[in-house]
Simulated assay, not measured.
Amino acid sequence: MNWQTLTTQPCELGESPFWHPHEQLLYWIDISGKKILRANVYMGTVESWDMPSEPGCMAPAASGGLVIALRHGVFRARQWGGPLQHLATLDYDPTHMRANDGKCDALGRFWIGTIDETKVARNAALYSLDCRDGRPPQLERKLDPATLPATTANGLAWSPDGRTLYWADTPSHAVHAWDYEPSRNTLTARRTFAQFAPKPAGWQFDPAADNRGYRGRPDGAAVDVQGNYYVAMFEGRRVCQFAPDGTLLAELATPAQCPTMPCFGGEDLRTLYLTSARHHRTAAELDAFPRSGCVFSMRVAVPGLPVNFFTD
């Protein structure tokens, strides 16, 4: 299985990819570059849309356009390049916090995790935004520092039946799982789904040392139709595939030291797309992995779950 390079112009910090089944386009964001991008993978064309602040995550809307979580709020765009309609403001200080990993659940609520950029306070949270049936936006904090202290929200995904929710705190090197009740929007029975070894003190990239014993930390994730959980391992040069019971099934080596988030796409949902990062990486690392920041793709045997749409 070999990765193909989809884009020639790298992002600083690529994230939040999804495949739009109606448009047959791949969307993703460049957080540090303050851009939303989309590609026609068949024609090889890429469009870019500048944002007023860093986009952390986004999702397609059932009635057209996007819902986007920016540093300074959550917004609705009715069309590509169109005006941004403010929906909600997340409860944090935007001078050192912003939206990060997020996506929609199967009922059309938009979930947004946050990140503390100082990496000091463990005050990241997870919110759900409900705008269904034309109701005024209802923002609810689902996980907060009191229930699960976290610094960087990542790894958000649901099982195929929608009854298990996954969420990771990247600096803790842990992925957690909850029982999820979609109709009541409740989380119970938290457990650790995957725990990875911590980053060794003083670790630095060394192309000759095969990561020097460090295997990375969990970033963005996606789930296939069999319930297998794929998670990008930032600084680990790999994507890990876990069975629903937490068994490690496979490790897919990647063309970048810092893969960020996978998603499934293509007409049969058997293409695995992967964003990556080059922001703040060393010259030695970029020399070894010059395609860092690009979007990659590879074919897989088992199709993934389709993207969930935002409903308003």
Results as ranks from 00 to 15, higher is better:
residue 254 T to Y: 09
residue 41 V to Y: 02
residue 237 R to Y: 04
residue 175 V to C: 14
residue 57 C to H: 03
residue 147 T to S: 15
residue 178 W to Q: 02
residue 206 D to I: 09
residue 138 Q to H: 11
residue 224 D to S: 07
residue 208 A to R: 15
residue 208 A to L: 12
residue 35 K to H: 09
residue 299 R to L: 15
residue 303 P to N: 00
residue 95 T to W: 05
residue 303 P to F: 03
residue 241 Q to M: 15
residue 6 L to D: 03
residue 109 R to G: 06
residue 175 V to K: 00
residue 153 A to G: 15
residue 188 T to H: 09
residue 9 Q to F: 01
residue 169 D to W: 02
residue 102 G to C: 05
residue 127 Y to I: 01
residue 174 A to L: 11
residue 38 R to Q: 03
residue 145 P to G: 04
residue 290 P to G: 08
residue 112 I to M: 09
residue 64 G to Q: 00
residue 46 V to F: 02
residue 202 G to W: 13
residue 293 G to Y: 10
residue 287 D to L: 14
residue 196 F to H: 14
residue 72 H to S: 00
residue 293 G to R: 08
residue 223 V to G: 11
residue 17 P to S: 08
residue 59 A to V: 01
residue 17 P to D: 08
residue 125 A to T: 11
residue 228 N to Y: 07
residue 276 S to V: 07
residue 24 Q to N: 12
residue 93 D to L: 06
residue 17 P to K: 08
residue 139 L to I: 05
residue 153 A to T: 10
residue 281 R to Y: 14
residue 177 A to M: 12
residue 126 L to N: 00
residue 7 T to N: 03
residue 155 G to C: 06
residue 273 Y to F: 15
residue 173 H to I: 00
residue 175 V to M: 15
residue 9 Q to D: 14
residue 258 C to W: 13
residue 12 E to Q: 14
residue 99 A to K: 02
residue 80 W to H: 06
residue 312 D to G: 13
residue 44 G to E: 01
residue 53 S to T: 11
residue 166 Y to H: 03
residue 312 D to F: 14
residue 312 D to C: 12
residue 258 C to N: 15
residue 254 T to F: 07
residue 256 A to V: 08
residue 226 Q to G: 14
residue 186 T to R: 08
residue 221 A to P: 04
residue 289 F to Q: 13
residue 282 T to A: 13
residue 224 D to I: 04
residue 242 F to G: 10
residue 85 Q to E: 15
residue 185 N to T: 13
residue 301 A to T: 15
residue 48 S to K: 11
residue 132 R to Y: 04
